[in-house]
Every structure is written in structure tokens, then in C-alpha cells.
């Protein structure tokens, strides 16, 4: 099925493209907007961006595969990204990663079978002063402890059950 965007997003995309001296430069922002709507950068998304920016699909593909934030397939409803870089590890992040893996029943890089959670281990999130930290769908949770991590997972499960 060909990919379609909402009118609002189309407008945003057009405005974004106008911010650069050439269309091809808008590749990163365009991929962000398309992923927001589509959930991932698959072949349809690549095709869409290529046509919009009038560049070969190979060029878009090359960019999409370089950056970690472009998901090649959609992640779970809640994407938990835990930082285990040096400061967070000094403050207990390796242990929290184990706690999360146990709570969710998955390893980093995996998604729960019900599609609710994806767990990733990520590099320094520029929040070392409040380490250890993680992000859920881009939102920070800082100064974590094992209890707070367990409570967070519980909260997300309740939120999901509530609709």
C-alpha cells in the first residue's frame, strides 16, 4: 500500500524542504516526519521520501541505514532506551538493564510478543548528572533505582491497559 501522510504533516514537510538551499538536504527531517506517521522507515517510506526530494531511493536508503533513530521496522508501543555508557554504568545501569530484561522478559534489541515494549541499550543520553537514566519514547526518566524502574514498567502497563 502506498504511503500517505496527513495534510498537516505534508504541510510541515513542504515548509521543512524550503529551509534548505536544495531539496536533497531535507532528507533527515523528511525521514523524521515520515517515521512519525508511519512508525518505521520501510521500503514504502524510502520511496516516499525519494519521490518528495527528487533523489534516488538508494540515496535515501543509505541515509536511513546510517542513523540509529530511523527504525527499519516499527518498535513496540513503548520504546525503552536505557543508557549504559560510563557514568550511568558507574551508577548502576548494568544492573537496571538486567532488572528491565527480567521484568519485560526480553533482552535489549527485542520487542515483547504483545508489541507493547521494545528494549534498547543506548549510548550517553546527555543526562549524566542525573544518572542512571532512560528514555521512554524520547521522554527522560532520571535518577533511577531498581524500584523506580519496576514502578515505571507497571505504570506503562496500566496506561496501556487503560487504552
Amino acid at each position: 500500500m502506498a504511503l500517505e501522510l496527513t495534510a498537516e504533516r505534508k504541510q510541515r514537510l513542504a515548509a521543512l524542504v524550503g529551509r534548505y538551499p536544495n531539496k536533497a538536504a531535507a532528507c533527515l527531517p523528511a525521514l523524521h516526519v515520515v517515521q512519525e506517521e508511519h512508525g518505521a522507515i520501510d521500503a514504502d517510506a524510502v520511496e516516499y521520501v525519494a519521490r518528495l526530494l527528487e533523489i534516488p531511493t538508494g540515496r535515501v536508503e543509505e541515509v536511513a541505514s546510517f542513523y540509529t533513530m530511523y527504525k527499519r521496522k516499527a518498535s513496540g508501543r513503548y520504546h525503552i532506551e536505557i543508557c549504559t555508557n560510563l557514568t550511568c554504568s558507574l551508577m548502576g545501569a548494568e544492573h537496571l538493564r538486567e532488572v528491565l530484561a527480567r521484568e519485560l522478559g526480553i533482552q535489549p534489541g527485542q520487542t515483547t510478543r504483545d508489541g507493547m515494549f521494545t528494549l534498547s541499550e543506548v549510548e550517553c543520553l546527555a543526562s549524566c548528572g542525573t544518572a542512571p537514566v532512560l528514555q521512554v519514547n524520547g521522554e527522560f526518566h532520571e535518577g533511577l533505582t531498581p524500584d523506580r524502574v519496576k514502578a515505571l514498567v507497571g505504570e506503562l502497563r496500566t496506561r496501556a491497559a487503560g487504552g
Binding site: R19, A26, C27, P29, H32, V63, Y67, T68, Y70, E123
Partner: peptide
């Protein structure tokens, strides 16, 4: 103009950053 990166530490290096700003691999 605010230009959002997409997850690549190397784009902090100034010439990789410029490549990335131009819509390419960093």
C-alpha cells in the same frame, strides 16, 4: 533553522555534522 540529527555520535565532529546537515550519511 533547527535541524534534528538522527542518532550518530560521529555527527558531533564538525565535518560529519555538515555532511549530515546536507542530508547525507555523517
Amino acid at each position: 533553522t533547527v535541524h534534528r540529527g538522527a542518532g550518530a555520535y560521529i555527527c558531533g565532529e564538525e565535518t560529519a555534522l555538515l555532511e549530515s546537515l546536507e542530508g547525507k550519511r555523517g
